[in-house]
Design a protein around this nucleic acid. Sequence first.
DNA 1: CTATAGATGCCCT
DNA 2: GGGCATCTATAGC
Length: 184
Amino acid sequence: MAPALLGLVLAAGDRAGRIVEVEAYLGADDPASHAHRGPTPRNATMFDRPGLLYVYFTYGMHWCTNVVAGPEGDGGAVLIRALAPLAGVDAMREVRPAARRDRDLCNGPAKLAQALGIDGSHDGVDLCDPDSPVRLLDDGRRPGAEPVVTTRVGISRATDRPWRWYLPDDPHVSRGRPSTVDRT
DNA sequence: CTATAGATGCCCT
DNA sequence: GGGCATCTATAGC
């Protein structure tokens, strides 16, 4: 499911970007996943319906954006790690003064959440509902290249699982560097 | 370009 | 109380 999200559009209000980097997090079988130890108040949305938005707070200041995926109750989700900005770029620049170049607007999970104005109030919204404040869209455009697969970024457990995918040669991919790279 | 330090608050053990 | 699915500024090359 995770690589299938590459190329789709994440939209919030008038701002939108194309997904260029994702990571898969499973449920009980994935020690790096918030869902590993079962449902808690924070991760409850992960165990809800696929297609919902899971938003979590981390490092005391950052929000991150996920798409709930897989069978309901399993706790699987896909972390959206980077977007290529498509619309509302002026608004993104206003909310993210730290981004000196446009390529820094959405090249990280917390950056894109801030750029799109996504926070904890959006946790659990339906990404497939046209009336939802955050939506996942398919404009028919497909990535021009096969995704590159690597291990996941920023985790300390299950670091060897090749569950990060990104579009090669895209300047909007995050600066996160995994321990190993495997081109397939 | 790379490398490093510090920020910062909440969840869960 | 430990540990974060991170980011920014700064220093150095």
